[in-house]
Simulated scan of single mutants.
Amino acid sequence: MIEAIAQFGSGYKPPSYHELRVPLLQDEKAQIDCIKKKYEDYWKSESQYADMLFQLFDSKIEEIGEDNVVQVVTNNAANYVATGRMLMQKRSKLYWTPGAAHCLDLMLEDIGKLKAYKITIERAKTMTSFIYRHYKLVDALRKKTNGIDLVRYGVKRFATSFLTLQSLYKNKDALKQLFVSDDWNSSKLSKTETGKKVLDTILAQTFWNHVLDCLRASQPILVVLRLVNGDERSALPEVYLAMEIAKKRMKVNFANKERSWKKVLAIIDDRWEVQMDRPLYAFT
């Protein structure tokens, strides 16, 4: 970049801050999207077919040597499930299994679909979206949270929602302080319909009670997910033990709310037993 500017010589006028971050950035993104589109079209038409995936995996197994391949691990998409079954039918010594992290993430997805948790997650998303659309509001909040952001991104898609709820609950006092401050009350945002709804949510104790229920349901699974995604890869027997501990913790978390933990445990057992209960893991 510096060399190009030097070659231009004197009189060069650099783009403004606005030009760099809006029109020029959008133009570059549009060009990259055009380049990427032809590859995406190819990926969509090829990767969705189990037969094609089977041939791809099978050729690699042949290349490596069937006796040297014990296990093939993929995600839980239907095309990969079908591919895994086809591989095991042809290769009697081989096991196909879905990834443990993806299995745990799908558990969190299913839990998030339960009515009580779904409503709470949607309200939390409305709150965080509103805050992060307005940079002055974000700056004011960061001052009260010592620079900590509310939105926490997990390594897996559905873990993010529950990690964000965890962060919201941890910083609920800072949120309340911000939304009852003179700065908020005197701002134009406080007069908007969305602003009023966000304020009502933040000040409602029932909302925070529901957030706590979401954390009771998700925290034990997040602990296992952290173990699976750690720098040191855990052996599956260790993960199996962690899941048993997680289920016991779930019952303790909900105490007298038997109906709640039974729903969550049913989701966990359904995903875990169908996807991760493999003879290979029992052997190890």
Results as ranks from 00 to 15, higher is better:
residue 239 V to S: 02
residue 206 T to W: 02
residue 249 R to M: 05
residue 232 E to L: 09
residue 253 N to F: 02
residue 262 K to F: 03
residue 249 R to N: 07
residue 226 R to H: 01
residue 216 R to F: 08
residue 259 R to K: 13
residue 187 S to E: 14
residue 181 S to K: 03
residue 244 E to Y: 10
residue 205 Q to D: 15
residue 229 N to R: 14
residue 205 Q to H: 08
residue 265 L to A: 07
residue 240 Y to F: 08
residue 172 K to H: 06
residue 252 V to H: 13
residue 229 N to C: 10
residue 176 K to I: 01
residue 213 D to F: 14
residue 189 L to W: 05
residue 236 L to T: 15
residue 179 F to M: 09
residue 232 E to P: 00
residue 241 L to C: 15
residue 263 K to S: 12
residue 179 F to P: 01
residue 263 K to W: 05
residue 253 N to M: 10
residue 224 V to R: 05
residue 258 E to M: 12
residue 255 A to G: 13
residue 176 K to S: 06
residue 177 Q to C: 10
residue 218 S to R: 03
residue 204 A to Y: 05
residue 206 T to P: 00
residue 169 Y to E: 14
residue 196 K to F: 02
residue 244 E to T: 15
residue 228 V to M: 00
residue 253 N to K: 08
residue 247 K to I: 03
residue 176 K to Y: 00
residue 187 S to K: 03
residue 229 N to I: 05
residue 185 N to L: 12
residue 183 D to R: 07
residue 173 D to E: 13
residue 226 R to F: 01
residue 227 L to V: 04
residue 178 L to P: 00
residue 206 T to C: 02
residue 237 P to S: 06
residue 206 T to E: 02
residue 240 Y to C: 04
residue 172 K to A: 07
residue 173 D to M: 15
residue 174 A to Q: 01
residue 178 L to S: 04
residue 198 V to Q: 01
residue 181 S to M: 09
residue 197 K to Q: 14
residue 180 V to Y: 00
residue 218 S to E: 00
residue 254 F to H: 06
residue 250 M to K: 09
residue 174 A to Y: 02
residue 210 H to E: 12
residue 209 N to L: 09
residue 264 V to K: 15
residue 180 V to E: 12
residue 168 L to M: 15
residue 258 E to S: 13
residue 220 P to G: 07
residue 167 S to M: 10
residue 223 V to M: 02
residue 197 K to D: 12
residue 246 A to V: 10
residue 192 T to C: 09
residue 171 N to M: 10
residue 218 S to Y: 01
residue 196 K to I: 05
residue 237 P to C: 00
residue 199 L to C: 12
residue 233 R to C: 08
residue 205 Q to L: 10
residue 244 E to Q: 15
residue 239 V to H: 06
residue 264 V to T: 08
residue 222 L to I: 13
residue 258 E to N: 14
residue 255 A to T: 13
residue 208 W to Y: 03
residue 214 C to L: 03
residue 194 T to W: 02
residue 208 W to M: 01
residue 196 K to A: 08
residue 211 V to D: 08
residue 258 E to L: 09
residue 240 Y to N: 07
